[in-house]
């Protein structure tokens, strides 16, 4: 997997122009969401039911994204890519690096994601859009997670996501609501391994987000992500953010956010700015 990430990203970058010229995705602007830190289409911290990119019937879509968050004691960097087909299936790959600015060292993991749209449409269906996703994660450094009580260096999350756009309901603006239920054993989404000395079983966690399209290019919203608390050495907090996404066209999305990740590995109040730039087709 080590050499796979740059290879796939290069592949997507190389394919993007040719696929885009062959069959430009015809989904409406911003309907691929942006790239979450785990690589799947979503917001910043949570996946949405939307499929990455702009592919509609029989079309290909894709995204590449670079994201960073600067917290009090940590710096997060994510490189991610996704390809999608038929607005039905999305395959994503992400490499996440967490620099331990205060503690010293770096944690790194890879996430391979698959999302399938099961039913509906966020725009056109009264019951919204429903997707099932899996995220297989593997820690590239396991010494620290192991030392603090993590049981495994890899794990697989499964989530069910629902997304729905409500037309003109907030001061005439469109409201996008998303909800996920996720089964996971991940500690700090996997940076600190999977399972722990306190709990070592799958637990259901809720994730939700709400955003308002100020116009078709600007989405302002918030996300919340519940997390398990598997390790005795330090308490794990839920995550949240406030975000602004700018989607000027089908090629570019820029997301700025303020993320609050709570306590991480005993260091409290980890919050700070987040920036993500996505190219798509």
């Amino acid at each position: 997997m080590k050499s796979l990430v740059p290879l796939i990203i290069a592949g997507v970058l190389g394919l993007a122009p040719s696929l885009a010229s062959a069959a430009p995705g015809s989904r409406l602007w911003a309907t691929g969401g942006v790239t979450s830190f785990e690589g799947a289409a979503g917001g910043g911290l949570t996946p949405w039911a939307l499929i990455a990119g702009y592919d509609s019937s029989q079309q290909w879509g894709g995204t590449v994204a670079q994201s960073t968050a600067h917290l009090q004691d940590y710096t997060l960097n994510v490189t991610a890519a996704a390809v999608s087909f038929d607005n039905r299936v999305e395959l994503s790959l992400a490499r996440q690096r967490l620099d331990l600015d205060t503690l010293g060292g770096r944690l790194s993991m890879d996430t391979l994601g698959l999302k399938v749209r099961l039913y509906g449409s966020a725009l056109y269906n009264r019951w919204g859009e429903w997707s099932l996703g899996i995220e297989h994660k593997h820690d590239r450094n396991f010494a620290l997670p192991s030392a603090v009580g993590a049981r495994s260096s890899s794990g697989t999350d499964v989530y069910l996501a629902a997304s729905k756009l409500f037309f003109g309901v907030v001061a005439g603006r469109n409201l996008l609501l998303n909800a996920d239920i996720r089964a996971t054993k991940a500690n700090q989404t996997g940076f600190l391994g999977f399972g722990g000395d306190k709990h070592d079983r799958y637990q259901p966690e809720f994730e939700g987000s709400a955003g308002v399209f100020v116009n078709r290019q600007w989405l302002v919203g918030t996300e919340y992500r519940q997390k398990p608390d598997n390790l005795n050495f330090a308490k794990e907090d839920d995550w949240m953010d406030l975000f602004v996404a700018y989607v000027p066209n089908r090629s570019l999305a820029v997301t700025a956010a303020w993320v609050d990740l709570g306590a991480i590995a005993g260091l409290k109040h980890q919050n700070g700015p987040y920036l993500s730039v996505q190219g798509s087709f």
Partner: peptide
């Protein structure tokens, strides 16, 4: 509105 929408759920 957000509260009302959350109460009646997605869709």
């Amino acid at each position: 509105l957000l509260a009302a929408l959350c109460l009646c759920g997605l869709g």
